[in-house]
Computed example of a mutant assay.
Amino acid sequence: MNKKRSPLKHLVVISAFLLPLNLMAQDDLGELFKSSPQDATKLVDAYMNPLFKGMGIGFNSGWNNTAKTKSFLRFDLRVTVTAAFVPTKDQTYNTNSLGLTSIRPASGSNGIGPAIIGNNAVGSKMEVYSGNTVVQTFNLPQGTGLKFAPSPQIQLTVGLPKNIDVSLRYIPGVKLGSDFGKIDQFGAGAKIELLPLIMGKKDKLVPFDLAVALGFTNTTYTKELDVNNGKYDNQDLEIKFKGFQAEAIISKKIAFFTPFASVGYHSSNSSLNAYGTYEFQTAAGSATFTDPVSLKNDDISGLKAALGFQLNLGFFRFYSSYTQAEYGFLNAGIGFGIGK
């Protein structure tokens, strides 16, 4: 008997988070496992780089849409999605600049391939070589056809005394089946209003709200792989994202409409590991390696500036904002809550 999925599982399945990873066919990823673990690691890093940056930004976004904190024990629960727009220059990579040791463009090929966030077209023809002997030829994998990296956020915010509220992001190891893998997420944030702290009850004389906020998020995605057509049953992919952000926010409530602006700093890093046993086509022939690919990158570190709004329609809320950073991104979503 098939078990019914919980609403949370449905939410995560339909969320855009999995779209780039699941549009990437397993045999496409397997095409990068050539020559040696060192060469494979460089190719995987180049292919996945804009996804690492885009999702790192996305999981780190959408924390706040107003400078006003919630009253004590008032709350809202929101679901938002971020689309981080990947610039054209990052939608392709050039293997000639990667320092590959036993892989090169085939005769007449330019060595350029689409990144995973890039054109849905097969990349340059490549060859594995040893001296003057060509051992094997293959094509760099195609992209997903997307121009942005999507990622969702599920967030609960609760008001505390002293004009402070705290936020929690949590997805508790939701298993989505062998085709979709599993996602774990934990994040926490806090916001404090500055004018009541500085001015006391006189803060109501100022016609806007001002706050500072910070947040961090850890996300892990795991998925079974089958790079060698069922020959090995222990192949797994693990991708981790870690992010931090801090910002100053100014907003003005106008009836049910609250526009806001913010400036701040954000950073994210990612890691990717391919665990298990894999068969490579090397310059010396077929060879097996264990846990051959391990990457760790500092993806984003810099300033950001955002404009957006919140609509408070009684029980329901609507959110939207655009942020300019290394990758510009749009965040939008819905929520519900009790009280201001």
Rank of each mutant, 00 (worst) to 15 (best):
Q281G: 08
Q281H: 06
T282A: 10
A283H: 05
A283L: 05
A284S: 15
G285V: 03
G285A: 03
S286V: 07
S286H: 09
S286A: 10
S286F: 13
A287G: 01
T288C: 01
T288Q: 10
F289Y: 15
F289H: 04
T290N: 07
T290A: 08
D291E: 01
D291R: 01
V293F: 07
S294Q: 07
S294A: 05
L295K: 07
L295Y: 06
K296S: 11
K296V: 03
K296E: 00
K296L: 00
N297W: 00
D298Y: 07
D299R: 08
D299C: 12
D299Y: 03
I300L: 09
I300V: 14
S301V: 00
S301H: 08
L303G: 13
L303W: 13
L303K: 08
L303Y: 12
K304Q: 15
A305E: 03
A305G: 15
A305C: 03
A306C: 06
A306W: 07
A306K: 14
L311G: 08
L311V: 12
N312V: 11
N312D: 14
N312K: 12
L313M: 13
L313E: 00
L313P: 03
G314R: 06
G314M: 06
G314C: 03
G314E: 06
F315E: 00
F315L: 15
F315R: 02
F315N: 04
F318R: 00
F318I: 11
Y319C: 02
Y319R: 06
S320C: 07
S320H: 02
S321D: 14
S321V: 07
S321Q: 14
S321A: 15
Y322K: 10
T323E: 14
Q324C: 00
Q324A: 12
A325E: 06
A325H: 04
E326Q: 12
Y327A: 04
G328Y: 05
G328T: 10
L330Q: 07
L330C: 00
N331S: 14
N331E: 10
N331I: 12
N331Y: 03
A332C: 04
